[in-house]
């Protein structure tokens, strides 16, 4: 069971919220596959143009000084070039995959290269069933769905979710920034996460998730 089944059995999935940029997820996937398949430098340049400035902004927002933020953006894009063969469009959208690389770059920088939180490349975490070829772009749909799910959160929930991505001591910092008690931060985050998961994961996941 995976997101593929979810998308198939839910043709009534909500349309993207009006007025939002729907992203160029499909185009980004194409660029990544061009790098993976043909070491396509033009594709890399296009991807760099789209993501490097956003990566720099993200690193800065997480508290990295500007010069180091640009270095990390560079390193992230070079890692994208090196690891493009490992990108599986059936498992993650382009932005999601690049995000995980950036996150690991930041953790490695902070922890002197020694501990990665979650190694998405790890073969033991690869789902056992291969992604059918005609579903290869399903993660683009997944990205679209997460955007719809994010816009469906209350503004308060969306805020704690965003801050969770930017603050290393999220609960304490969020508590300070928003001026709300820690218990409220946690309960908002949990509610938000449940709503995101309900939107994105298969309905029977709870039943199947506990068995190997």
């Amino acid at each position: 069971m995976d997101i593929v089944a979810h998308v198939r059995v839910r043709p009534d999935s909500p349309p993207p919220a009006p007025g939002r940029v729907t992203g160029s997820g499909g185009e980004d996937v194409r660029l990544l596959l061009a790098i993976a398949g043909g070491r396509d430098r033009a594709a890399f340049a296009a991807l760099f143009g789209r993501f490097a400035p956003r990566l720099k902004a993200w690193f800065q927002r997480t508290g990295t000084p500007p010069a180091q933020a640009e270095d990390l953006a560079q390193e992230t894009m070079l890692a994208v070039w090196r690891k493009a063969e490992l990108f599986d469009p059936g498992r993650a959208g382009a932005a999601t995959w690049i995000f995980t690389i950036a996150r690991n770059q930041r953790i490695d920088a902070a922890r002197r290269d020694a501990l990665r939180v979650f190694d998405g490349d790890d073969p033991s975490l690869t789902p056992p069933e291969p992604t059918p070829p005609d579903d290869a772009f399903v993660a683009v749909e997944q990205d679209r769905r997460v955007r719809a799910a994010l816009t469906a959160l209350t503004p308060e929930q969306a805020e704690v979710v965003r801050l969770s991505f930017f603050e290393d001591r999220p609960h304490g910092e969020i508590e300070r920034v928003l001026g709300i008690p820690l218990g409220t931060v946690k309960s908002r985050l949990r509610l938000a996460m449940r709503r995101l998961r309900a939107q994105l994961e298969t309905p029977n996941k709870a039943a199947t998730g506990d068995s190997h």
Partner: peptide, 13 residues
Amino acid sequence: TGETTGGAILEDM
């Protein structure tokens, strides 16, 4: 799901 959320946040930066 959290990583997908991170991807969306990155894209919206």
